[in-house]
Protein backbone atom coordinates (compact mmCIF):
# COMPACT_ATOMS: atom_id res chain seq x y z
CA UNK A 1 0.00 0.00 0.00
CA UNK A 2 2.67 2.49 1.02
CA UNK A 3 4.64 1.36 -1.93
CA UNK A 4 1.81 2.20 -4.28
CA UNK A 5 1.36 5.58 -2.69
CA UNK A 6 5.04 6.30 -3.00
CA UNK A 7 4.97 5.25 -6.61
CA UNK A 8 2.09 7.60 -7.35
CA UNK A 9 3.95 10.41 -5.64
CA UNK A 10 7.06 9.78 -7.69
CA UNK A 11 5.01 9.52 -10.80
CA UNK A 12 3.30 12.80 -10.11
CA UNK A 13 6.55 14.55 -9.34
CA UNK A 14 8.19 13.27 -12.50
CA UNK A 15 5.35 14.05 -14.83
CA UNK A 16 3.76 17.21 -13.41
CA UNK A 17 6.30 18.96 -15.47
CA UNK A 18 7.73 22.02 -13.91
CA UNK A 19 7.64 24.04 -17.12
CA UNK A 20 3.87 24.35 -17.06
CA UNK A 21 3.80 25.21 -13.37
CA UNK A 22 6.55 27.70 -14.04
CA UNK A 23 4.60 29.45 -16.77
CA UNK A 24 1.46 29.57 -14.64
CA UNK A 25 3.33 31.05 -11.70
CA UNK A 26 5.20 33.56 -13.88
CA UNK A 27 1.95 34.85 -15.38
CA UNK A 28 0.40 35.25 -11.95
CA UNK A 29 3.46 37.01 -10.62
CA UNK A 30 3.43 39.27 -13.64
CA UNK A 31 -0.03 40.50 -12.66
CA UNK A 32 1.20 41.19 -9.14
CA UNK A 33 4.25 43.02 -10.51
CA UNK A 34 2.12 45.17 -12.80
CA UNK A 35 -0.08 46.19 -9.90
CA UNK A 36 2.77 46.88 -7.48
CA UNK A 37 4.78 48.57 -10.22
CA UNK A 38 1.85 50.83 -11.05
CA UNK A 39 1.54 51.97 -7.46
CA UNK A 40 5.28 52.42 -6.89
CA UNK A 41 5.94 54.15 -10.21
CA UNK A 42 3.16 56.68 -9.68
CA UNK A 43 4.36 57.37 -6.13
CA UNK A 44 7.93 57.72 -7.40
CA UNK A 45 6.86 60.05 -10.19
CA UNK A 46 4.93 62.30 -7.86
CA UNK A 47 7.84 62.60 -5.41
CA UNK A 48 8.98 65.96 -6.75
CA UNK A 49 5.56 67.54 -6.40
CA UNK A 50 5.15 66.35 -2.83
CA UNK A 51 8.72 67.39 -2.01
CA UNK A 52 8.15 70.90 -3.38
CA UNK A 53 4.71 71.61 -2.00
CA UNK A 54 4.63 69.16 0.87
CA UNK A 55 1.33 67.80 2.01
CA UNK A 56 -0.14 71.19 1.09
CA UNK A 57 -0.28 69.90 -2.48
CA UNK A 58 -3.54 68.29 -1.43
CA UNK A 59 -5.05 71.52 -0.09
CA UNK A 60 -3.82 74.17 -2.53
CA UNK A 61 -6.36 75.49 -4.96
CA UNK A 62 -3.89 76.78 -7.55
CA UNK A 63 -2.99 75.25 -10.90
CA UNK A 64 -0.71 77.66 -12.69
CA UNK A 65 1.91 76.33 -15.12
CA UNK A 66 3.30 79.85 -15.70
CA UNK A 67 4.30 80.45 -12.09
CA UNK A 68 4.95 76.74 -11.47
CA UNK A 69 2.38 76.61 -8.68
CA UNK A 70 0.33 73.46 -8.47
CA UNK A 71 -2.34 72.16 -6.13
CA UNK A 72 -4.81 69.34 -6.34
CA UNK A 73 -7.98 70.77 -4.84
CA UNK A 74 -9.82 72.01 -7.92
CA UNK A 75 -9.26 68.79 -9.89
CA UNK A 76 -10.11 66.56 -6.92
CA UNK A 77 -13.28 68.54 -6.26
CA UNK A 78 -14.19 68.31 -9.95
CA UNK A 79 -13.74 64.54 -9.87
CA UNK A 80 -15.79 64.13 -6.70
CA UNK A 81 -18.60 66.46 -7.78
CA UNK A 82 -19.00 65.02 -11.28
CA UNK A 83 -18.91 61.44 -10.03
CA UNK A 84 -21.42 62.21 -7.27
CA UNK A 85 -23.79 63.91 -9.73
CA UNK A 86 -23.31 60.89 -11.96
CA UNK A 87 -24.12 58.42 -9.22
CA UNK A 88 -27.14 60.40 -7.96
CA UNK A 89 -28.65 60.36 -11.46
CA UNK A 90 -27.56 56.80 -12.18
CA UNK A 91 -29.10 55.20 -9.08
CA UNK A 92 -32.75 55.75 -10.04
CA UNK A 93 -31.99 54.93 -13.69
CA UNK A 94 -30.25 51.68 -12.80
CA UNK A 95 -32.78 50.74 -10.16
CA UNK A 96 -35.73 51.45 -12.43
CA UNK A 97 -34.41 49.42 -15.31
CA UNK A 98 -33.24 46.56 -13.09
CA UNK A 99 -36.65 46.50 -11.38
CA UNK A 100 -38.52 46.56 -14.67
CA UNK A 101 -36.36 43.91 -16.31
CA UNK A 102 -36.24 41.51 -13.38
CA UNK A 103 -39.78 41.78 -11.95
CA UNK A 104 -42.21 43.52 -14.28
CA UNK A 105 -41.44 42.79 -17.91
CA UNK A 106 -42.19 39.20 -19.00
CA UNK A 107 -39.02 37.15 -19.16
CA UNK A 108 -39.33 36.57 -22.88
CA UNK A 109 -39.10 40.30 -23.60
CA UNK A 110 -36.60 41.12 -20.88
CA UNK A 111 -34.25 38.49 -22.28
CA UNK A 112 -34.07 40.62 -25.43
CA UNK A 113 -34.07 44.06 -23.80
CA UNK A 114 -31.45 43.32 -21.13
CA UNK A 115 -28.57 42.72 -23.57
CA UNK A 116 -29.61 45.78 -25.56
CA UNK A 117 -29.32 47.98 -22.48
CA UNK A 118 -26.06 46.26 -21.60
CA UNK A 119 -24.74 47.37 -25.00
CA UNK A 120 -24.55 50.86 -23.46
CA UNK A 121 -21.70 49.53 -21.33
CA UNK A 122 -19.82 48.44 -24.44
CA UNK A 123 -19.94 51.80 -26.23
CA UNK A 124 -16.40 53.27 -26.03
CA UNK A 125 -16.10 56.18 -23.67
CA UNK A 126 -14.83 58.49 -26.39
CA UNK A 127 -18.13 58.00 -28.23
CA UNK A 128 -19.98 59.19 -25.13
CA UNK A 129 -17.63 62.17 -25.25
CA UNK A 130 -18.65 62.97 -28.84
CA UNK A 131 -22.31 62.39 -28.08
CA UNK A 132 -22.03 64.72 -25.12
CA UNK A 133 -20.08 67.33 -27.03
CA UNK A 134 -22.37 67.52 -30.07
CA UNK A 135 -25.73 66.58 -28.55
CA UNK A 136 -25.91 67.17 -24.78
CA UNK A 137 -23.81 70.35 -24.58
CA UNK A 138 -25.99 72.34 -27.03
CA UNK A 139 -29.08 70.95 -25.32
CA UNK A 140 -27.79 72.16 -21.96
CA UNK A 141 -26.76 75.55 -23.27
CA UNK A 142 -29.97 76.24 -25.15
CA UNK A 143 -32.67 74.71 -22.96
CA UNK A 144 -31.73 73.19 -19.62
CA UNK A 145 -29.55 75.85 -18.08
CA UNK A 146 -31.70 78.86 -19.13
CA UNK A 147 -34.73 76.97 -17.84
CA UNK A 148 -33.12 76.25 -14.48
CA UNK A 149 -31.86 79.79 -14.20
CA UNK A 150 -35.22 81.26 -15.05
CA UNK A 151 -37.19 79.10 -12.62
CA UNK A 152 -34.80 78.64 -9.72
CA UNK A 153 -32.44 81.58 -10.21
CA UNK A 154 -34.00 83.62 -7.42
CA UNK A 155 -33.67 80.97 -4.72
CA UNK A 156 -30.51 81.76 -2.69
CA UNK A 157 -28.51 78.52 -2.84
CA UNK A 158 -29.80 77.24 -6.15
CA UNK A 159 -29.01 80.54 -7.88
CA UNK A 160 -25.34 80.02 -7.07
CA UNK A 161 -25.43 76.48 -8.41
CA UNK A 162 -27.00 77.58 -11.68
CA UNK A 163 -25.07 80.82 -12.19
CA UNK A 164 -22.74 81.65 -15.05
CA UNK A 165 -23.12 82.04 -18.79
CA UNK A 166 -24.77 79.10 -20.57
CA UNK A 167 -21.80 77.37 -22.17
CA UNK A 168 -23.40 73.98 -21.75
CA UNK A 169 -20.14 72.46 -20.52
CA UNK A 170 -19.14 71.90 -16.92
CA UNK A 171 -19.64 69.71 -13.90
CA UNK A 172 -23.33 68.99 -14.42
CA UNK A 173 -23.00 67.96 -18.07
CA UNK A 174 -20.03 65.79 -17.11
CA UNK A 175 -22.02 64.16 -14.33
CA UNK A 176 -24.96 63.53 -16.62
CA UNK A 177 -22.81 61.73 -19.17
CA UNK A 178 -21.10 59.73 -16.43
CA UNK A 179 -24.55 58.71 -15.21
CA UNK A 180 -25.46 57.27 -18.61
CA UNK A 181 -22.12 55.46 -18.79
CA UNK A 182 -22.25 53.80 -15.37
CA UNK A 183 -25.97 52.98 -15.33
CA UNK A 184 -25.59 49.66 -17.20
CA UNK A 185 -22.89 48.49 -14.78
CA UNK A 186 -24.99 49.24 -11.70
CA UNK A 187 -28.13 47.88 -13.37
CA UNK A 188 -26.40 44.58 -14.18
CA UNK A 189 -25.36 44.08 -10.55
CA UNK A 190 -28.81 45.08 -9.26
CA UNK A 191 -30.68 42.89 -11.71
CA UNK A 192 -28.51 39.94 -10.78
CA UNK A 193 -29.13 40.56 -7.09
CA UNK A 194 -32.89 40.94 -7.57
CA UNK A 195 -33.11 37.72 -9.53
CA UNK A 196 -31.11 35.89 -6.89
CA UNK A 197 -33.55 36.78 -4.14
CA UNK A 198 -35.18 33.51 -2.99
CA UNK A 199 -38.58 33.09 -4.62
CA UNK A 200 -39.97 31.64 -1.39
CA UNK A 201 -39.53 34.96 0.39
CA UNK A 202 -41.32 36.82 -2.39
CA UNK A 203 -44.13 34.27 -2.54
CA UNK A 204 -44.74 34.45 1.17
CA UNK A 205 -45.08 38.21 0.88
CA UNK A 206 -47.49 37.81 -2.03
CA UNK A 207 -49.57 35.44 0.04
CA UNK A 208 -49.91 38.16 2.68
CA UNK A 209 -51.36 40.44 0.02
CA UNK A 210 -48.35 42.65 -0.65
CA UNK A 211 -48.21 44.57 -3.93
CA UNK A 212 -45.36 44.18 -6.41
CA UNK A 213 -43.74 47.40 -5.26
CA UNK A 214 -44.04 46.47 -1.60
CA UNK A 215 -42.26 43.22 -2.32
CA UNK A 216 -39.48 45.07 -4.08
CA UNK A 217 -39.23 47.61 -1.28
CA UNK A 218 -39.52 45.35 1.77
CA UNK A 219 -38.38 41.93 0.56
CA UNK A 220 -36.09 42.08 -2.47
CA UNK A 221 -34.28 45.30 -1.60
CA UNK A 222 -33.91 44.27 2.01
CA UNK A 223 -32.49 40.93 1.00
CA UNK A 224 -30.10 42.26 -1.63
CA UNK A 225 -29.07 45.58 -0.12
CA UNK A 226 -25.41 44.68 0.18
CA UNK A 227 -25.14 43.70 -3.47
CA UNK A 228 -27.05 46.83 -4.48
CA UNK A 229 -24.70 49.01 -2.47
CA UNK A 230 -21.71 47.14 -3.89
CA UNK A 231 -22.98 47.76 -7.41
CA UNK A 232 -23.47 51.45 -6.72
CA UNK A 233 -19.95 51.83 -5.35
CA UNK A 234 -18.59 49.87 -8.33
CA UNK A 235 -20.32 52.37 -10.63
CA UNK A 236 -18.90 55.24 -8.60
CA UNK A 237 -15.41 53.78 -8.93
CA UNK A 238 -15.84 53.67 -12.70
CA UNK A 239 -17.10 57.25 -12.75
CA UNK A 240 -14.05 58.47 -10.82
CA UNK A 241 -11.53 57.38 -13.42
CA UNK A 242 -13.53 58.08 -16.55
CA UNK A 243 -11.40 60.18 -18.87
CA UNK A 244 -12.33 60.65 -22.51
CA UNK A 245 -16.04 61.36 -22.10
CA UNK A 246 -15.37 63.93 -19.40
CA UNK A 247 -12.54 65.61 -21.26
CA UNK A 248 -14.93 66.54 -24.07
CA UNK A 249 -17.57 68.21 -21.91
CA UNK A 250 -15.84 69.51 -18.79
CA UNK A 251 -14.64 72.77 -20.34
CA UNK A 252 -11.05 72.65 -19.02
CA UNK A 253 -10.74 75.43 -16.46
CA UNK A 254 -9.00 75.09 -13.10
CA UNK A 255 -11.39 77.10 -11.01
CA UNK A 256 -13.36 76.37 -7.92
CA UNK A 257 -16.83 77.82 -7.76
CA UNK A 258 -20.35 77.00 -6.77
CA UNK A 259 -21.72 76.92 -10.27
CA UNK A 260 -22.43 73.50 -11.71
CA UNK A 261 -22.41 75.02 -15.18
CA UNK A 262 -19.00 76.68 -15.12
CA UNK A 263 -16.13 75.08 -17.05
CA UNK A 264 -14.08 72.98 -14.71
CA UNK A 265 -11.68 70.02 -14.62
CA UNK A 266 -11.38 66.57 -13.15
CA UNK A 267 -8.20 64.70 -12.26
CA UNK A 268 -8.36 62.49 -15.32
CA UNK A 269 -9.31 65.26 -17.75
CA UNK A 270 -6.46 67.43 -16.45
CA UNK A 271 -4.00 64.56 -16.92
CA UNK A 272 -5.31 63.83 -20.41
CA UNK A 273 -5.13 67.49 -21.45
CA UNK A 274 -1.84 68.56 -19.90
CA UNK A 275 0.33 65.46 -19.58
CA UNK A 276 1.25 65.25 -23.30
CA UNK A 277 2.51 68.82 -23.27
CA UNK A 278 4.59 68.70 -20.11
CA UNK A 279 8.30 67.98 -20.22
CA UNK A 280 9.71 64.77 -18.74
CA UNK A 281 10.97 65.35 -15.23
CA UNK A 282 9.31 68.74 -14.89
CA UNK A 283 7.46 69.85 -11.79
CA UNK A 284 4.26 69.93 -13.82
CA UNK A 285 4.59 66.29 -14.82
CA UNK A 286 5.31 65.35 -11.24
CA UNK A 287 2.23 67.25 -10.07
CA UNK A 288 0.12 65.45 -12.66
CA UNK A 289 1.52 62.17 -11.34
CA UNK A 290 0.55 63.36 -7.87
CA UNK A 291 -3.00 63.81 -9.13
CA UNK A 292 -2.78 60.31 -10.54
CA UNK A 293 -1.79 59.01 -7.10
CA UNK A 294 -4.83 60.70 -5.55
CA UNK A 295 -7.11 59.23 -8.21
CA UNK A 296 -5.55 55.82 -7.65
CA UNK A 297 -6.11 55.97 -3.89
CA UNK A 298 -9.74 57.09 -4.18
CA UNK A 299 -10.70 54.63 -6.88
CA UNK A 300 -8.92 51.65 -5.32
CA UNK A 301 -10.67 52.41 -2.03
CA UNK A 302 -14.01 52.49 -3.83
CA UNK A 303 -13.28 49.25 -5.68
CA UNK A 304 -12.15 47.62 -2.47
CA UNK A 305 -15.40 48.53 -0.70
CA UNK A 306 -17.55 47.34 -3.59
CA UNK A 307 -15.66 44.07 -3.84
CA UNK A 308 -16.06 43.49 -0.12
CA UNK A 309 -19.81 44.06 -0.26
CA UNK A 310 -20.32 41.95 -3.38
CA UNK A 311 -18.28 39.10 -1.89
CA UNK A 312 -20.42 39.16 1.23
CA UNK A 313 -23.65 39.01 -0.70
CA UNK A 314 -22.23 36.16 -2.80
CA UNK A 315 -21.47 34.27 0.37
CA UNK A 316 -25.00 34.89 1.61
CA UNK A 317 -26.34 33.48 -1.64
CA UNK A 318 -24.25 30.35 -1.30
CA UNK A 319 -25.29 30.01 2.34
CA UNK A 320 -28.92 29.92 1.26
Amino acid sequence: MTNVKKNIDINRKASSSSWFNGLVWISSFLILFIFIGLILKLLWGSQQAFATFGIEFLTRAIWNPVTQQYGAVSAVLGTLVTSLIGIVIAIPLAFGSAYALSEIIPIRISRIVTPIIQLLAAVPSIIFGMWGFFFIVPLMARYVQPFLKHNFGHIPILSALFSGPPFGVGLFTGGLILAVMITPFIAAVMQNAFQNTPVLLKESAYSLGATKWEIMRYVTLAWSKKAVLGGIILGWGRALGETMAITFVIGNANKIGWSLFAPSNTISSLIALEFPESATGSLKMSSLMGLGVILMVISFLALFCSRYLLRQSERKLRGN
Binding site: F35, L38, G241, S268, F275, L288, M296, S299, L303
Partner: peptide
Protein backbone atom coordinates in the same frame (compact mmCIF):
# COMPACT_ATOMS: atom_id res chain seq x y z
CA UNK B 1 -5.35 42.22 -7.62
CA UNK B 2 -6.64 41.11 -10.99
CA UNK B 3 -10.10 42.34 -9.97
CA UNK B 4 -8.64 45.69 -8.90
CA UNK B 5 -6.76 46.04 -12.20
CA UNK B 6 -9.93 45.22 -14.13
CA UNK B 7 -11.67 48.33 -12.85
CA UNK B 8 -8.62 50.56 -12.47
CA UNK B 9 -8.87 53.87 -14.36
CA UNK B 10 -7.32 53.28 -17.76
CA UNK B 11 -5.52 56.62 -17.73
CA UNK B 12 -3.44 55.42 -14.76
CA UNK B 13 -2.26 52.50 -16.88
CA UNK B 14 -1.19 55.07 -19.47
CA UNK B 15 0.78 56.98 -16.83
CA UNK B 16 2.41 53.74 -15.66
Amino acid sequence: ISDMLMSAPSILVGLF
